[in-house]
Amino acid sequence: MTFLDKTVLDEAVLSEATAGDYLELLKPRVMSLVVFTAFVGMVAAPVTLNPFVAIVAILSIAIGAGASGALNMWYDADIDAVMSRTASRPVPAGRILPQQALAFGLVLSALSVMTLGVFVNWVAGAGLAFTIFFYAVVYTMWLKRWTPQNIVIGGAAGSFPPMIGWAAATGSISLESVILFLIIFLWTPPHFWALALFKSGDYARAGVPMMPNVAGEASTKRQIFAYSVVLAVVGVLPWVLDYAGAAYGVAAAALGLGFVWYAWAVLMMPADDRAMRPAKALFGYSLLYLFAIFAIYLADSVVERIVTGAAA
């Protein structure tokens, strides 16, 4: 023991990080959305997986998503430290060392991709690997600090899970799973820009070029509205293309109209409104929207399967 520098030991071995701190590195709340959308993609697919294999697929996707979260927290510890929303994360708070978060993220990435590839199929495995790469490298290291389009392009990472779920079941990609991708992809900018509007001070302090800091609030509000309109239209597409029934179509249209209505309130928000209630309301509604539209899609496809099963 005396051969080692005591300060190195204090830091590396004698950690006060609990299992809960490591769990926090996996961004459990983001993970829950990933698990849910991947599950919907998997169940909506025309091939039914063995339930145990399905559990392995969901578990692998969840761990892979968590691993990319850990890699993000390793790389972003410097900016997380200066933002109120993220300052208490394990790395900026000093409970976990950056290199420990990095190792944790890398090991879980490899393990989750291998597990998904070997036990389910390699299309899904490759999709998960690409998603982790896209989130950790393309978004976190490259886009986030460079361009206000960061979350627009980076949003692709969060949009892949239903496609991975679909690929886990079918071993392929289809237009249906691409539309599920598009729904999350178009949802991401209004969701994050609503947050960025009322947290713009945080992002400015951290030097992250979010849209309100770069293009101004007025432009951000217009872009939120534009994305919301396109999202509302794409949300109905599964029904138009006959992938989902009329019940889904009606629900998706209503949810989309609600989204546009909240986005309109943000667009009409006076420039001197610092409380930004409409932006906070849109942020809250956007979370509800995504859960609801995927839940209805799931219910629709399950009902469809039961009905066709009964007819056959």
Partner: peptide
Amino acid sequence: DIETVKPTEAQKKARRSRNIAI
């Protein structure tokens, strides 16, 4: 006489929690 590092109670507790999780 060999100098070893003595973990504090908090460190022991955290290590136990990590070990159980692993």
